[in-house]
């Protein structure tokens, strides 16, 4: 299972590199959301707690290191998303595409709101934030539309990895295959 964690770590790192270089070009301005969110949701839905948290913490730390925000912000966001989604698996059918779509959209929106709050802008200057809030809606919609596709692709990757290693998952929380 460590091998699976490492593979998802590599996938996450590739996403980090992509979203700090190619996806930050003016061409893609305001379109792409944080691609690690679908990955964190996927890990929460499909990996046991220990492996999932390991990957989430490493990715969160890396994002914090390369970001100009408060250290620990990404780590906290990913960690709480992981736990929140994990708790949802007990109450909802997480395999439903519509549910996944809403879930990822909500996570992206929540991340933006936390970033916005972390800036601790005085109320008098809050108007200037509206400029930055404009892409939030579009990113949330795009996340809701593309999130389930990313989850599906990650699920395929997991199935292939399990086939290669001959591991059969028995955990009941496996939602995406």
């Amino acid at each position: 299972m460590m091998k699976v964690s490492c593979i998802y770590l590599v996938v996450g790192l590739s996403a980090v590199v992509a979203q700090t270089t190619i996806l930050r070009l003016p061409l893609f301005h305001g379109i792409f959301y944080d691609l690690l969110i679908p990955l964190v949701v996927f890990l929460s839905l499909n990996l046991p707690n220990r492996e999932g948290i390991f990957v989430v913490v490493i990715l969160g730390l890396i994002m914090d290191l390369i970001s100009g925000g408060i250290f620990g912000l990404y780590l906290s966001i990913y960690f709480w998303i992981f736990l929140w989604v994990k708790s949802l698996t007990k109450f909802f059918d997480v395999g439903d595409t519509l549910f996944q779509s809403v879930l990822i959209g909500v996570c992206v929106l929540a991340q933006h709101l936390i970033f916005c709050i972390s800036l601790s802008v005085p109320w008098a200057e809050a108007q200037s934030l509206t400029v930055q809030m404009t892409p939030v809606l579009s990113q949330t919609i795009i996340a809701a539309l593309t999130g389930p596709v990313i989850l599906l692709l990650l699920g395929r990757l997991l199935t292939r990895l399990q086939r290669l290693s001959g591991v059969t998952r028995e955990t009941g929380d496996t939602a995406i295959r």
């Binding site: 700090t20 930050r24 970001s67 100009g68 925000g69 970033f115 916005c116 930055q132």
Partner: peptide, 14 residues
Amino acid sequence: VVGLDPSGWFKTVF
């Protein structure tokens, strides 16, 4: 400049 901040909220470059 070889990289930008992953979030649009913070303005840093590498």
